[in-house]
Nucleic acid binder design. Structure first.
Lengths: 209, 209
DNA sequence: TCCTAAACGCTAACCGTTAGTGCTACGGTC
DNA sequence: GACCGTAGCACTAACGGTTAGCGTTTAGGA
């Protein structure tokens, strides 16, 4: 019951990988909607229940490899060069993600995702989940114990930037424009320099400017 | 085949209303997840197929009355007082929506929504859909033929504000903070006055109470 | 060696949703 | 008032994703 080290882990990982590979292959061959869970399970030579013990849903079969998405976002904050400001670091990472998805060998996969409403929905809710991790990373970067509203907001805006840029005709130009807006939003909210903008919070009085 | 005026329409509306009422009652009595579509249909004395001819999904049964949500957002733009700036008008409307959801007789409904992941997801994707209408309304307000990236971004940020404020411990204070950020984002992006960077309007433009 | 537990399998269902089909009643027209 | 097109609704049956219940194998540790 200590560490499940060794062969068992490898077998499990192999099964998982076989399922994911099979699923992706079938989806690309016949289309996402035309392939059923039972098809994937049969082709991967596992039971349906086994498939669902590795993946929470049919959509998760597609976004398996993109779990590192979250990692990349948080690392863009934590592992950036010492004096690089926060927002440019995020912008750089989003740009890299955009390019990774747009070109590369991943093109047919993203065509498939764009072609299925269920997958698009899933990706969006995935991004929103990741925004919460990003908010935590930003808060930690600022030395805050817990994410503030401003952290959560900037995190949400950042994943919006990804989502909006991906839908734009010219993603990279759109990203520039959106991040100018994100930067401006951050400038009025960041705790270290916000003192000149507002000095009160928590009490009833609210005001702008 | 002209206008289906009269009794038929009324009967249809009555059936729809009966289904919605029954569904809401059962959901509140037993919990959303504990009530099946077949239960609702039986209790409303209609066939399952009839239910689905009135409502696109189970979640839509809950958000039936909130179709005006989209209308309210776009009208906050189109029907605002002549010289009121865009962002404060949006802020005012979001505040009204927050209050409408938080207090009022709607409290148990929102408790139910918050208690069901499926419903929370549905609400979020609904808001994202509404963001696109809002973007169109903003574009029209500026005399643009089609929504630009900036319009879409501000629209998205606006519905984010609603979503983030609703999750916050103190929604109204959070909304103030978020809208300060939205305002800043808009200032650097708005096409007509992008040059005069910041114009603070300090006097009490927002109504409280 | 034996014991525990994880991984896997099978069956059988549950649940939301849809297709196919047909009946009924309403509304407009002659 | 009789006629007809069509909208609303019902019923059966299924599809596809997902899960529960329960049994079987197999690896790892005692």
């Amino acid at each position: 019951m200590t560490e499940p080290s060794g062969r068992r882990e490898r077998k499990k990982a192999a099964t998982r990988q076989k399922i994911a590979d099979t699923a992706l292959r079938l989806f690309l061959e016949r289309g996402y909607d035309a392939v059923g869970i039972r098809d994937v399970a049969a082709e991967a030579d596992v039971a349906v229940t086994t498939l669902f013990s590795h993946f929470a849903s049919k959509e998760a079969l597609v976004f398996d490899q993109d779990e590192n998405f979250e990692r990349r976002l948080t690392r863009a904050v934590t592992d950036r060069p010492p004096h690089e400001p926060l927002i440019p670091a995020l912008r750089r990472e989003i740009l890299a993600l955009l390019r990774h998805c747009a070109s590369e060998a991943a093109a047919p996969i993203w065509r498939m995702i764009d072609g299925s409403p269920a997958l698009r929905e899933y990706e969006k809710s995935m991004m929103t989940r990741h925004a919460e991790s990003l908010a935590a990373a930003i808060a930690a970067d600022l030395g805050l114990p817990r994410p503030t509203t401003a952290c959560r907001t900037i995190a949400r805006f950042t994943v919006d930037a990804y989502s909006l840029a991906r839908e734009a005709a010219d993603p990279e130009t759109a990203l520039d424009e959106i991040f100018r807006m994100v930067e401006a939003a951050w400038e009025v909210a960041r705790p270290d320099t916000a003192s000149r903008a507002f000095a009160h919070h928590g009490s009833g009085a609210q005001d702008v400017g």
